[in-house]
Amino acid sequence: MRNHRWIILMMLVLALIPSAALGASRHTVYASVTSGSGSIQAVLVPGEFTVPQGQTATVVRFVHDNPATGYHSEKLGPSNIYSVNLGRYMTDAQGNPLFQLPPGQYRFVVGGHPGATGSLTYDLVP
């Protein structure tokens, strides 16, 4: 049993070395959907984040949950990351979401019913 713990510990340490060696830093941004009022039933609450000049963001994890419907996804969609600078969603020519983001200001958005939430985790790499 002791050998297994040692092996697991070493695997975890080795998995972290590439990010640390590159000077990467991990960040998470959150988005949600809240209740509206009057004729507006739901309000999107985006999470805003900035990729500084000289760095690139690499998306490493995405989660979207909508408790009202039981929806759960870990697949980034074409309308989840909006570039404020470019005025468009970050997709390639075929409409697929981009996982590498250049420097700029972004909004992370999820849809659904009030109570829906999302998280986007990315590494900033020089």
Rank of each mutant, 00 (worst) to 15 (best):
Q100V: 04
S35R: 12
S73T: 07
L86G: 05
S79F: 09
E48C: 10
A31K: 09
D92P: 02
P97N: 05
G87H: 05
Q53Y: 01
A24S: 12
S83T: 14
N66M: 15
A31Y: 08
P102D: 02
A31H: 13
S73R: 03
P46R: 12
T50N: 13
Y89G: 10
G36Q: 15
L76V: 11
V63S: 14
V51N: 06
E48R: 11
S79K: 07
L44S: 15
L98Y: 14
P67W: 13
F99T: 15
Q53H: 00
S73K: 05
H64M: 12
P52I: 04
Q41C: 03
G36K: 12
V63A: 11
G95D: 07
E74S: 13
L101G: 10
P97K: 02
R26I: 13
T56F: 10
Y71D: 08
F62L: 09
N80M: 00
G54M: 00
V51S: 06
G38L: 07
T91R: 11
A68H: 09
F49D: 01
R61D: 04
M90H: 06
T28K: 06
V45D: 11
Y82C: 01
N96C: 00
K75S: 06
P67N: 10
Q94M: 14
P78R: 14
G47L: 08
T91V: 15
L44W: 01
G95L: 15
Y82P: 00
Q41G: 05
S73M: 03
V33K: 04
A93W: 00
I81N: 03
N80E: 04
G47Y: 12
I81S: 00
D92V: 01
P97G: 06
N80L: 02
K75F: 01
L44C: 08
T91S: 09
Q41P: 02
P46Y: 10
G70P: 04
P46L: 08
R88G: 09
G36Y: 10
V33F: 02
S79Q: 09
Y106R: 07
P97H: 03
P78Y: 09
K75C: 00
